[in-house]
């Protein structure tokens, strides 16, 4: 059998193969068998050099024709196959098929919101150690040696030979670290974990998160503190909220103030959640105490500043309506799923 006959035979075999019914899969195999890199057609092209020189031209023409024919026929079938409607009934009400969804923790979501508002006001985010020197947590924050916060019943101390560290009870030591390192103007927030020896219950967690704000410059006043705190709470809770400042006592600020915000549930008219007062207690604040400045080598006659702190869980509880602080640390997927 010469090569031309062989071509004819191949063509007939292909025609026969494409007469019958076949599936998409079989069609794919057919395409590979005939048109693949090592398929029948490619093999024939390889064999051109074996054809006597005078027949080569004719053989080439026939082979090209075969290739075009096979290609056209396969593509035709492919097109038909594509246009065929699926036979089976499709139930479009079947639920969607999904993968596992990831997400951020609700406290991260709130912290990001808080950070965004402060960054918008020109604050930089700072961090500091959680296993902190006693002197940074208390002495340098002007906490008298007899202050109850220093008690073993209030604060976790760490068991090291030097006995000089504790688990920070507030994020305020970051203030000290920044002021020691950097000259004013300083405008920072410091979010992070803090530790207090409170038995866990629905409203207490021995480990929780705070954000601290600090602004130090020439001529910073109590009015600046009030304005910034108001702007912050409006940024977080909306333009309708108001703030109220109440005199309070913190060792590291003077004057010191507790900040209340309009109750977001009753809009200030009084409800169960704000104990009928119309106000929600939001955090502590005040003008940096001159003793704190002296300790970090900033002249309190030249510079003044304010600081304020708030609990992140408190904000999350208000924003999400969570009724038990421990839920934030139990990591129950059914809880986490509701936020991220």
């Amino acid at each position: 059998m010469n090569i031309s006959e062989e071509l004819g035979k191949i063509r007939r075999a292909f025609e026969a193969a494409t007469e019958a019914d076949f599936t998409a899969e079989e069609l794919g195999k057919l395409r590979v068998a005939y048109l693949g890199r090592k398929g029948i057609v490619a093999d024939l092209f390889d064999r051109i050099r074996d054809v006597p020189a005078d027949e080569r031209k004719e053989f080439g023409r026939v082979l090209n024709e075969l290739k075009l024919f096979v290609t056209a026929r396969i593509e035709e079938h492919e097109a038909t196959m594509r246009s065929k409607k699926p036979k089976e009934n499709v139930d479009v009400t079947l639920p969607g098929i999904v993968g596992f969804q990831g997400g951020l923790h609700p406290l991260t979501i709130i912290l990001n919101e808080i950070t965004d508002v402060f960054r918008g006001m020109g604050f930089t985010v700072e961090t500091g150690p959680e296993a902190e020197l006693i002197s940074y947590n208390f002495d340098k924050l002007n906490t008298p040696f007899w202050h109850p916060a220093r008690d073993l019943t209030d604060t976790f101390y760490l068991d090291t030979p030097a006995r000089d560290k504790l688990l920070r009870t507030e994020t305020s030591p970051v203030q000290i670290r920044v002021m020691e390192r950097q000259k004013p103007p300083i405008r920072i927030i410091a979010p992070g974990r803090v530790y207090r020896s409170d038995k866990p219950d629905a409203t207490h967690s021995p480990i929780f998160m705070q954000v601290e704000g600090l602004y130090v410059d020439k001529g910073v006043s109590f009015a600046d503190l009030k304005g910034t705190v108001l702007a912050f709470y409006r940024g977080l809770f909306g333009p309708h909220v108001k703030t109220r400042f109440r005199p309070h006592f913190f060792p590291f600020t003077e004057p010191s103030a507790e900040v209340d915000m309009t109750c977001i549930f009753c809009k200030g008219s009084g409800c169960r959640l704000c104990k009928q007062s119309g106000w929600l207690e939001m955090g502590g604040s005040g003008m940096v105490d001159p003793n704190v400045f002296l300790g970090v080598g900033i002249d309190p006659e030249e510079y003044s500043g304010w600081a304020f702190g708030l609990g992140i869980e408190r904000i999350a509880i208000l924003k999400f309506g969570v009724d038990d602080i421990r839920l934030f640390y139990e990591n129950d997927i059914r809880f986490l799923r509701q936020f991220g």
Binding site: T124, P185, A223, E254, M287
Partner: peptide, 28 residues
């Protein structure tokens, strides 16, 4: 200290009588 007296003055005057300024004076 003087600052303690300043706190007393503003406590008597009223914390909520102080105006609200915003700290937009310096770009850091």
């Amino acid at each position: 200290r003087e600052i303690d007296l300043i706190e007393e003055i503003i406590r008597m005057h009223g914390y909520n009588e102080v105006g609200m300024a915003t700290t937009s004076r310096v770009v850091l």
